[in-house]
Design a protein around this nucleic acid. Structure first.
Lengths: 144, 144
DNA sequence: CCTACATTTGCATCGTTGTTGCATTTAAAA
DNA sequence: TTTTAAATGCAACAACGATGCAAATGTAGG
């Protein structure tokens, strides 16, 4: 899937900022921070434009924000827009994924979970959804 | 357990700011934001002092920070220092707890989890620990 | 293809959160 | 009580993110 297709599909205007962000994200197989995206982007955009673009993409369920801690926020494409990457090649239809944060190389990846039981909470709590953040060492860092 | 006891036990100086923060947190059965704590606090402290106090309490494993999203950070006492609250009365020795965020009243609570399986990740990932954030409606809001 | 209109962008400005350096004050050990 | 290491308050700074407004741009309709 290409940036333009995604924007058309969601009835968003195809502006160069949005296209650029999506292009960078489609080429990456991990979640990226605002700065990581900006570095790989061709054009130069105002911070405001950048934030507004993310907001729009988020509201239209194209990307989602992953907050690891106060100083580490990353963005990832929604699963349906991912095309490549070894982790997603099996085309499973998992509704649930974890956010894996490698404490060594500081990368964040969405990891599809095969069987993830809904946590059991005490009586009276109504669960809308849950988020799972896993911290540790990624495959690449484990090899070294 | 009293604020002073906690500070003595961890060999921290008993300053009025630390004592105040711990007093407020011991009296609450939910996680509190910086502002919520400041409002309930008697003295008036500089923001810097406040942040440094939290940092010290965190480093000494007395409280932990819970980041729900970019504009909602709360602090909770470590389980061992909690004394009251219906949710903790059973004195289970759970190593794992979820952070429940009520989307209606915006409160955050630590919920002990009875059986929480470690998520299964693809080959090569080494898990240090994981965090579970559950969003939904709390007991109190469900009654209304 | 051109026009009109709604949307998006860039800029200036503001607010919040959190950090750092430094001089002063305070807690606690001697 | 004295000493000293730690904590505090203040000023300044940096990063993140939001808002209002004028200018630029994308797109639908003719």
């Amino acid at each position: 899937m290409k940036p333009i297709d995604i924007l058309n599909e969601t009835h968003l205007k195809r502006t160069s900022c949005r296209e650029g962000i999506l292009k960078v994200m489609l080429e990456s197989n991990e979640a990226l921070s605002e700065n990581e995206i900006r570095e790989r982007l061709e054009g130069n955009y105002d911070r405001t434009t950048f934030y507004r673009s993310f907001k729009t993409l988020e509201e239209n369920h194209i990307v989602h924000k992953i907050i690891i801690d106060a100083s580490l926020t990353k963005y990832a494409l929604e699963e349906q827009y991912l095309e490549i990457g070894p982790l997603h090649s099996e085309k499973e239809t998992t509704s649930m994924h974890a956010h894996f944060h490698c404490q060594q190389c500081n990368t964040v990846k969405c990891i599809p979970l095969k069987d993830c039981p809904t946590p059991v909470l005490p009586e009276g709590y109504l669960i809308d959804h849950f988020e799972l953040i896993v911290k540790g060492t990624c495959q690449l860092c484990n090899l070294n």
